[in-house]
Design a protein around this nucleic acid. Structure first.
Lengths: 336, 336
DNA sequence: TTGTATGCGTTATCAG
DNA sequence: CTGATAACGCATACAA
């Protein structure tokens, strides 16, 4: 039998309420304080969170919902969240969308079972709509981290995709590129912003992004990047730089390029978005724009616990940082 | 105010105990059953896990402790664990070892705060010793997933590293390799097993692994693989195949190889262990031996809830699967 | 400053 | 089959 608060009370010869007050840093006389400290140490007592939460009417847990295929994103995000959560005596409950089902069942049960105080949904999209609806109905604070689609009047933390696009535009323009193609993957909010930024950034440098060289293949996986690459190289458009909608696509694209003997960046510069760990691992390393996942995780927690009305109205936009590696280079005079 | 069990009882005109019995599938008469079903649906009632757990004297949560730098491993592992946990009305609490501290503070608090029913420690090593000790003291069932060091009489799930080594040995021998080098990274239990298997497997094919070509650089990161590669290529030993202790090292190694113009696999075959996602993403793809992480996660949960004495004595060893990609090829006649 | 009493939402043990 | 009632371990008005 583990010692409970009443065990402590008995051993110290006081009432449980006194112990409770002691534990919560309220009024206790010096001598009693000393005695309790001793008894607690001797018994190795510590509070039961379950009981404490029940009494306080809270859960001491926040839920995190994330698609299972986001592995690279993931770790950084977790670190940020955990660090912030530790401050709040709260811990993390996790659900990856493992089930092939279209809804996020586990998280729904969290809500219905009153197991969480708040919810963070990563990359909110169609599959998570019913989840968000349920959270709203149950009045569980929810923040959308890098949502894929708009959700009005919600707590949102995202990265500044528009300026990321501008950044890529400037980088490529600086290197002398004028013939540029874009393949975005899935036409989500984020991706549209990236494209808008790219287009605007290039325009500012008097470069026009040919609409015929802009596409969305509808997927995000490296495999999709490979398939796109095969189509792309078959047509072999006169292009000196290829902008992919994210790093996964870009890595798949580069893999095929190597296979076909295309030299990067001499024959073709390639860029991505996100800066997943793999991007620094391949050769040539992928030039990309990094999302500050760790920071975003941390901000998501803050916003979750921020009950001011402003929280649900002002989205936080984190700046993305250009990471120049070897996959981009100056335009060379000789043709491909 | 959310409906509680007594709200339901009142609306249905029965006692709370009856509702409880209904909820847990015990004896209830047909008419009452029907009435309760209706009332619960109308009220949108569902049980409070906090209260339920308190009453049942359990926590409804298992803790997962994992080093933060294991990202690739991670997702697969989580999927396996979650799937199994869902069966047991239990959910997952997560802690990555973010803090630079040598102990795993968050998990310690879980134990002390009685927040978890069980604990899974991934890659148990020196940093987790105090955590395991605490878990034992508190009698919290714990399973060690792919431990780095031995821990007698514990629940253990690992992969069969010895046979993985043998598998690599056979693969290379089949391709005609005789001059083989090995760099293991950190000399953990797993790595020693891999080396033992490799050595034995090669010996069975009458190939001797030259001890001078066996090393442990003491790290596991791609960066370490890169540093090792630089040293390796400076000495340029007469070797046709390089076996790295894990995929991260191998990827770092290959990156430098490319950079130096070494052709893989024509000039040098390279293999790793683990099959992290990146290994299939680079070109050439890395030949490696896959750990069935998903399955291991699932087995870890099973073992956690298995209270038979056998559980703590027989370690589960999962077979690893050879994944042949482009980084290995036959030995070519012409020298480097 | 300390003790008493009550509530948090369930489950389980009893009688009836 | 059903209904009181006592746990579960802690927090907090309120009274002393």
């Amino acid at each position: 039998m583990r010692p409970t608060i009443s065990t402590v009370a008995r051993h110290a010869g006081v009432a449980v309420s006194t112990v409770s007050r002691y534990l919560n840093g309220h009024y206790v006389s010096r001598p009693v304080k000393a005695r309790l400290s001793k008894v607690i140490g001797r018994l190795g007592y510590s509070r039961s969170w379950t009981a404490r939460n029940l009494s306080l009417g809270r859960k001491g847990c926040v839920g995190l919902v994330v698609d299972s295929n986001q592995s690279p994103w993931f770790t950084q995000l977790l670190i940020g969240i955990e660090k912030e959560l530790a401050t709040r005596e709260s811990s993390l409950m996790l659900s990856t969308g493992y089930s092939g089902r279209s809804d996020s069942g586990i998280a729904l049960e969290w809500i219905q079972g009153h197991r969480i105080d708040g919810l963070i949904i990563v990359k909110y999209g169609a599959r998570e709509r019913s989840l968000l609806a349920q959270a709203l109905r149950s009045k569980i604070p929810t923040v959308l981290l890098a949502p894929r689609e708009a959700a009005p009047n919600q707590r949102v933390v995202r990265s500044d995709n528009y300026h990321a696009g501008v950044t890529i535009a400037n980088h490529l323009a600086d290197l002398g590129h004028k013939k540029i193609a874009f393949e975005g993957g899935v036409a989500h909010l984020d991706l549209k912003d990236r494209l808008r930024g790219l287009t605007a950034g290039l325009a500012r440098r008097d470069i026009r992004l040919n609409p015929k060289l802009v596409s969305f293949c509808g997927k995000f996986e490296p495999q999709a990047g490979m398939e796109f690459a095969n189509r792309f190289f078959k047509k072999a458009p006169a292009v000196t730089a290829m902008v992919l909608g994210n790093d996964s696509l870009a890595l798949g694209f580069m893999r095929v390029a190597h296979h076909r003997g295309i030299r990067i960046p001499q024959d073709l510069s390639v860029t991505g978005f996100d800066d997943i760990p793999e991007s620094g691992l391949v050769w040539p390393g992928l030039t990309t724009v990094a999302q500050p996942m760790r920071e975003m995780g941390r901000l998501a927690c803050r916003k979750l616990f921020d009950l001011s009305p402003a929280a649900t109205h002002e989205a936080i936009e984190c700046p993305m940082r250009l990471v120049v590696r070897e996959s981009t280079g100056p335009v060379l005079p000789r043709p491909r």
